[in-house]
């Protein structure tokens, strides 16, 4: 019942609630299957576009910029260490389905040797200390806990069930002007 009418059972009905709930079951596409299998082996893979050289991780199976297909022959393993190139701090609004209550950061990473990741979780660092240029490394879930249940065709990130997040390495920050400008 809409809150507005809960008070007076004789007042006109002016609102209507409808809880839309739909579930989808989709087969993981082949490139994402390979990506997920690699995560289980604690490997992070991507596809390198043969034309422009951009690296996509997770792989898409094509480069959307050059519109050329990519496959296993374009696969490469990415390093598990990199630099924060951008970040956002989220203050959770308690809308339906929001499970977070504390402020948290989501970061974009430039990996050493090439490749970028977006919307990654940062560990072992207070939210207010997150900054561009911060050096980080992957923190894998333990062998017992690691799974790829959260990896779907719609994945933006990796899924905390495989890589829990990224922690500071303690190395000096990379100056902002040394970071590529085309990552977000």
């Amino acid at each position: 019942m809409a809150e507005s009418q809960a008070a007076d059972l004789n007042a006109p009905v002016v609102g209507m609630d409808y809880h839309m709930h739909v579930q989808y079951h989709e087969v993981l596409c082949p490139v994402m299957r390979e990506f997920a299998d690699a995560l289980m082996d604690k490997r992070l893979i991507g596809h390198k576009c043969p034309q422009c050289g951009l690296i996509y991780s997770p792989p898409k199976g094509y480069c959307p910029i050059c519109v050329v297909p990519t496959d296993k022959s374009h696969e490469l393993e990415l390093q598990q260490r990199g630099t924060v190139t951008n970040y956002t701090i989220v203050t959770p609004v308690q809308y339906h389905g929001q499970e977070e209550t504390d402020r948290f950061a989501k970061a974009s990473l430039q990996l050493d040797g090439g490749g970028t990741l977006s919307l990654q979780d940062l560990l072992e660092i207070p939210v207010d200390d997150v900054r561009i240029g911060l050096r980080v490394e992957a923190v894998w879930a333990s062998d017992a806990e690691r799974n790829v249940d959260e990896v779907t065709n719609r994945s933006w990130g990796i899924g905390e069930s495989a890589i829990r997040g990224w922690q500071p390495t303690g190395e000096p920050d990379v100056p902002a002007d040394e970071l590529p400008t085309n990552v977000f």
């Binding site: 993981l28 596409c29 199976g61 519109v67 297909p69």
Partner: peptide
């Protein structure tokens, strides 16, 4: 009945084929 590819993945060859048939560069 149930494609294992994503929508952009199976769209990709379809769009390419239509453009090739038309002879219009993308």
């Amino acid at each position: 009945r149930q494609a294992e590819l994503t929508e952009p993945q199976f769209l990709y060859p379809v769009i390419s084929e239509a453009l090739e048939r038309a002879g219009v560069p993308r």
